[in-house]
């Protein structure tokens, strides 16, 4: 049985695509056959983050419309053999997504033997976002430590509860995970940011990880390499931890406390 995981947030720019890229990569590195689908039809980004934008021939909408089959549209990742990307269409809009079409794509992926299917949701609560979460078994709700992002995440959790197939059919509800991204322990310490505990208290779903704010993320996306591949980066380590927790391994939270730089560091700089 393939598990369908939606990466969603409500608000834009919080790190959904970065997270989708890193988590799908992380699962693939653990040996699971994984597909990641970009639902942001009209504003495709995932292919850029994954560094496969020059290899896009067919896209999700082509498959939904039956103009191409899945094998033609799936792009094999350049780093992992068992990771495949299904890009969004740049030229269409979200109305091109139909529930039947999306369901068929997910079914077909399951027949191809995929273990995990990640759906990278667009921002907002409109059609694209709803289509991305409709068939989800699990949801990773990405939130920044900031009130408007938390409010939007709360909204999307409500939509998950009311519009997902699992909810409509009265099956076991979608399993929810909270991922706090762009976290800066220093700014939390200074009282400029909500702490991850505040966010969790507001949203009341289990925390799967905290990803620190880092310049590495920008660098990684410019290179077209998912952040989880970065060497010696806190972000990569934090995403590795998320994968471990997702697979039910115990990992303590890291990168959530602020340590004042020591005297040597202050004198000589350094990372």
């Amino acid at each position: 049985m393939a598990r369908v995981i939606v990466v969603t947030s409500g608000k834009g720019g919080v790190g959904k695509t970065t997270t989708s890229a890193s988590i799908s990569t992380g699962l693939a590195l653990r040996g699971f056959k994984t597909a990641v689908i970009d639902f942001d039809v009209g504003l495709r980004n995932l292919d850029l983050i994954m560094g496969c934008e020059r290899r896009v021939v067919y896209d999700l909408i082509n498959v939904v419309n039956g103009e191409a089959n899945l094998n033609q549209a799936l792009i094999k990742d350049k780093h992992c053999d068992n990771l495949f990307i299904l890009p969004a269409s740049q030229t269409r809009d979200k109305d091109a997504l139909t529930e039947e079409g999306v369901e068929k794509v997910l079914k077909d992926l399951e027949h191809l033997g995929f273990d995990y299917i990640l759906c990278d949701s667009p921002a907002g609560i409109e059609r694209g976002a709803v289509m991305a979460l409709t068939f989800a078994d699990e949801a990773i709700v990405v939130s920044n430590p900031e009130v408007s992002s938390v409010r939007d995440s709360d909204r999307i959790l409500g939509i998950l509860q009311s519009k997902s197939r699992r909810a409509i059919e009265g099956r076991e509800p979608v399993k929810e995970h909270l991922l706090v991204t762009r976290y800066s322990p220093k700014r939390v310490e200074d009282g400029e940011m909500l702490s991850y505990k505040d966010v969790q208290e507001l949203l009341r779903i289990p925390l799967i990880g905290v990803i620190p704010e880092s310049d590495d993320v920008l660098q990684a996306s410019n290179q077209g390499t998912p952040a989880i591949h970065l060497k010696d980066s806190d972000v990569a380590t934090a995403y590795q931890d998320v994968i471990a927790r997702f697979l039910d391994e115990d990992r303590p939270l890291r990168f959530v406390t602020y340590e004042k730089p020591g005297i040597l560091k202050r004198l000589f700089g350094g990372k």
């Binding site: 409010r151 939007d152 909204r155 959790l157 409500g158 939509i159 509860q161 009311s162 009341r204």
Partner: peptide, 8 residues
């Protein structure tokens, strides 16, 4: 039984 979310 479940938390009531924004917009609900």
């Amino acid at each position: 039984d479940r938390p009531l979310r924004s917009g609900q």
